[in-house]
Design a protein around this nucleic acid. Structure first.
Lengths: 138, 138
DNA sequence: CATAAGGTTAAAGTAAACTTGAAGGTCAAT
DNA sequence: ATTGACCTTCAAGTTTACTTTAACCTTATG
């Protein structure tokens, strides 16, 4: 298929598809006699893998190391490990969020229970300050 | 505290902390007589919130709309609102994380459950078709 | 007093992931 | 044969999120 059809099938802009080729991420492409790009149906699969990989937090650089040019060459184990690592990261973050949520809820309950108090605001500030969602390195 | 201490406490580069101030994301800062930035302890909390917000998939732009501008100026009424807002923020983060996680899990499950004689390429296609995610817009 | 360590600014540079623009070639239909 | 849709390349522009650089000021220490 030509790039326009691939674009419609995947919902990705043609510029994006050409860009992925430029950076060596999408290698499943030949040229027709007129110079037009021609894609096998597999290309659609690869593009979906790329999009979903990005949604799951992978950079294009990571993806180009993970995805093979040929799907039958898929580095199965490598991909599995990478996916499991991302999943672990997310689960850790969910835990922290749940903790923070629980703390916030208890603060809210306290404040709503005794509206006149002056200490409650200070207390709230204290708890908020302790809301260590872990050391935030990126 | 001065910027160096805040940097050490949070693990964030001083350039990053100044940058967050530049774009109006970190407003918890005064100036000493010598011109040095001076931060209240709450600044550490806010920076952790920012880092973790980013990890949860928020852009700095989204975060500057979500985060309270001044933790130290919170009054009782505002505190309640801020807490409720924060709770809503966290729930939003949880949704994003759940989204990411669902994405990853569906990929993982399908790859792990790879039926015996199925070729990698075919399996990959099956994975994609079952992701139901359709067209990868971001 | 000298010097290092740490603070200040403004501006420029970087990297990722694209998009846009210009100038043009190809193809199907009227 | 001309229009319009679709294709090409290459370069330059954009956005986000920072870092680096340069020149300079302030504070602590030997």
């Amino acid at each position: 298929m030509k790039i326009g059809e691939l674009s419609k099938r995947t919902g990705l802009a043609t510029s994006k598809i050409r860009f992925y080729e430029d950076i060596g991420l999408l290698k499943l492409v030949k040229r027709a006699d007129n110079g037009y790009r021609t894609y096998p149906p597999e290309a659609e699969t690869v593009l979906h893998l790329i999009s979903n990989g990005q949604k799951a937090g992978f950079s294009l650089d990571e993806l180009s190391k993970l995805l093979p040019s040929d799907l039958s060459d898929w580095k199965h184990d490598q991909l599995l490990n990478a996916l499991r690592q991302k999943l672990a990261d997310i689960e850790l973050m969910e835990k922290k969020l749940a903790d923070n949520k629980r703390q916030l809820n208890s603060i809210l309950n306290d404040i709503e229970a005794k509206p006149g108090g002056m200490a409650c605001a200070d207390n709230a500030k204290r708890v908020i300050s302790q809301m260590g969602m872990g050391k935030g390195r990126r």
